[in-house]
Amino acid sequence: HKPTGLVVMCQTERSQLGNKEKAMDMMRTKLYDEEVRKAEEAISHKRKSLVSTGDRSAKIRTYNYPQGRVTDHRIGVTVYNLDNVLNGDIQEFIDALQFAENAEKLATES
C-alpha cells in the first residue's frame, strides 16, 4: 500500500495505549470512507460514460425512408434494407455492435 497522507491525532483517553487504539479506529474509519468515495466516484464515472447527453449530435440511428437506408452512427454501419429492419431483422446491427464492443475491450486491455 502507498501512504495515503491521512493523519489522525487523539488525546481523549487517559492512557497512551487508549489514545493509540482510538486513533487507529479513527484511521480505519477515514480509510473506509475514502475507499467508499473512490468506489462511488468510479461508478458515477462509468454511469456518465454510458448515458447519452441527449443532444441531436448524439443520435444512435438514422432511418432514411426514401433511400431505404438505416445507419447506426455508433459504429458507422449502413444497411439498405429498411423494411427488413423495421420488421425486426436487426441481426446485422447486433453482429456489428458485438464486434465493435469486443474490439473496444481488446483495445482497453492492452
Rank of each mutant, 00 (worst) to 15 (best):
L6P: 00
M24L: 15
S49A: 07
V79A: 07
Y63D: 07
E101F: 08
G54N: 09
T53H: 04
H73L: 03
I75M: 03
G88P: 03
K2H: 14
V51M: 13
G88V: 05
T71G: 05
E35R: 11
M27P: 02
I90C: 00
E41S: 14
A100E: 06
V70G: 01
N84E: 13
N87Q: 12
S52L: 11
P3L: 07
R69V: 06
Q16M: 14
L17Q: 10
F93N: 07
T53E: 09
M24P: 04
K105M: 08
A107M: 05
S110T: 10
L6W: 01
P66L: 07
R74G: 04
K2D: 12
Y32K: 12
I60P: 02
S15Q: 08
R47L: 05
D95N: 13
K59Q: 13
A96W: 02
Q11E: 14
Q16V: 14
Y32E: 10
E41G: 14
M9F: 06
G18W: 12
L97N: 03
T71H: 06
Y32L: 11
L97G: 01
V8R: 14
V8Y: 05
E92P: 10
E101C: 10
N81Q: 14
R56F: 02
R61F: 00
L106C: 08
R56L: 04
M24E: 13
M26W: 03
E35M: 08
R74S: 06
A103D: 03
E104P: 00
R69Q: 09
G76S: 12
K59M: 11
M26L: 15
K48R: 15
T78L: 03
S57P: 04
P66D: 08
N81M: 10
K105Q: 11
D83T: 10
R69G: 02
V36L: 07
C10W: 01
S110R: 13
R61H: 03
V8A: 11
I43T: 07
E104R: 14
K46F: 00
K30L: 12
